[in-house]
Every structure is written in C-alpha cells, then in structure tokens.
Design a binder for these strands. Sequence first.
DNA 1: TTTAATGCAAAGCGTTTGCACTGCT
DNA 2: AGCAGTGCAAACGCTTTGCATTAAA
Lengths: 145, 145
Amino acid sequence: MKNKVQACLTKDDIVDSLKNVGVNPTAQRIAICQFVLCQGDHPTADEIKTWVDQHFPKLSLATIYNTLKTLTDAGVLREYKFPHSGKSFYDNNLVDHYHLLDEESGKLIDIDSKSINVSKGFLKEFTVNKMDVIFYGKHKSQVDG
Amino acid sequence: MKNKVQACLTKDDIVDSLKNVGVNPTAQRIAICQFVLCQGDHPTADEIKTWVDQHFPKLSLATIYNTLKTLTDAGVLREYKFPHSGKSFYDNNLVDHYHLLDEESGKLIDIDSKSINVSKGFLKEFTVNKMDVIFYGKHKSQVDG
DNA sequence: TTTAATGCAAAGCGTTTGCACTGCT
DNA sequence: AGCAGTGCAAACGCTTTGCATTAAA
C-alpha cells in the first residue's frame, strides 16, 4: 500500500499549473516545482535546496523560500510545522489529511483524515475551523506486525 | 466551566515539589515555579520572563530556559510546540490532553483526550507511541452558541 | 523601459551554549 | 575549596528582509 501516488509531471504540466494559479513560471520556480510537486516527499527548504543545486545552475535559498511562499499562497502547496522539528515541511497533497512521523525512518507519512473522529460532545462545545494532528510511531509491516 | 482549576501553591509547596523530583529549590527556580505551576496559563519563555522581572530582583533568560528544561526533564512540566507559533509553551497539566487555540483570544485551552478517538483500522495499521492534536477555533458561548 | 523576479548578505526570532562568576556546603 | 546554579553575550538554526542586480514583456 503506497502512501502517495504522485505521477511525475512534465515541465509543460508544471508551466500550465503555475499559469493556472497566476504564478509566473520562471525557470527557478519550475525547477523547484519539479522536485516539490513530483519527487519530493514532504521536503524541507534545505532538502529542496540540495536537490535544486544538483539540477539547476544557481538558485538561492531566498528564492526557494520566496517561491515556497508564493506556491503556498497560490494553493499549490501546503506548509506544515511539527513539534519535533524547527523546520517547515512542504506537501503537495492538497486534500485534508494528517501525518505520522515514522520514528524509524524519520519520514512523514500522510494519514487519511477519516482515521480519527472528533466526539459530538466536543463539537457541540467548540467551533473548530481547522485541526492538526501528528502521530509518532511506525507502520506495522506485514512481517513483524 | 473552567478550563483548568489550579490551586495556587505556597512557596513551601513548591519547595517540596522540587525536592520530590530531585531539583534543588533555588530562589530563581521557585520564582519561576510560582508563575508556571500556578498562575501561568500555557506561558511562553518570554511571558515567564515578563512576570518574573516584576517579582524577582534579577533573573536571566538563560536561567529561565535552563529551569524550564530542568523542570520538563523532571516531569513537573510539559513543553508544547504548535504550528501557529515558533515559541514553546509550558503546561503544568501533566495528564494527556490536546489543545485548542482560541482564535479570538489567542489563548490555548486544554482539551480532554477523550474528545477524539482514533479509528480501529488505523491502529491496526500503525503503532502509535504518541500523538499531538491542536484545534483552531473557539468555545461556543451559551449566548451565541 | 518598466516591472517582476532573483541573489546576496544582513537581520530577525526563539533558543542554546560557553564561560566566567556567584553563592552555597 | 568545590560545585551546582546563574548571568551575560555570543552563537545557533531556520526564516525573512532590504536592496542592488538581472531578466523578461
């Protein structure tokens, strides 16, 4: 069972996506999107920088942060922060979901929002606009589970 | 309905609490505890500093951070980090619970852990050691709710 | 040419650290 | 004297910012 199935987008797909949300598709932004929208799995800014440095002549950290903000504001990405790390994580999964930090691999795994439910009593007492959940644990493998 | 009922501890109570967990009850630590264990409501380090500056001749930020770490390690406090703020929040409620950020007041409200439950299916698939939940919303008052 | 996007370096914020100093025992 | 605890300032990690430079319409 795959955590996420993310078909690799072509450069043209990315250009279209950016245009669709009113973001000027510069070479730097396309490069960043190639990683974040496709290959990256909840990358941090520095992980993006590392990848981009190997695939793009020169691209500053400031541009990465600017671009991530632009893409987040445009609704192409979501930014997450978790208690276990000071860094921001960027997620191309735009559907509401939670996360599990796999304590063995250190990787974040997307968790379906149906996996938890909030008690009726609580919802009677509070108006909830948003909620964030992070689990710490690991996936039970078929072998040792 | 009160969010938390926290009887104000006497200085002697605090001294005893610290001794009980093997922490040397210095004047600075007692001062910090007077706020954090009693009056404070999920204070941050700088809020603790502000209070302490008004009640103690001189106490450095470093000592506040050191003391918070000592108290957290000793199990007297819990440290929480939430996505909406870069700061750490310190909580004297040692019972497992979640939080709601009241978007009107900016205050954190303790939420009973019974308020949410995790689906059996999810728990069959993952081993969960810990989970953090934060709600963003507000308490429904009896008037406008 | 005029406007947006970029790169760099500096500043920002919250926290941690190194080290000298203080004050108990 | 010895040692834990403290204070200060510097360093830290991550992110944001100001501003000069570049590139694109």
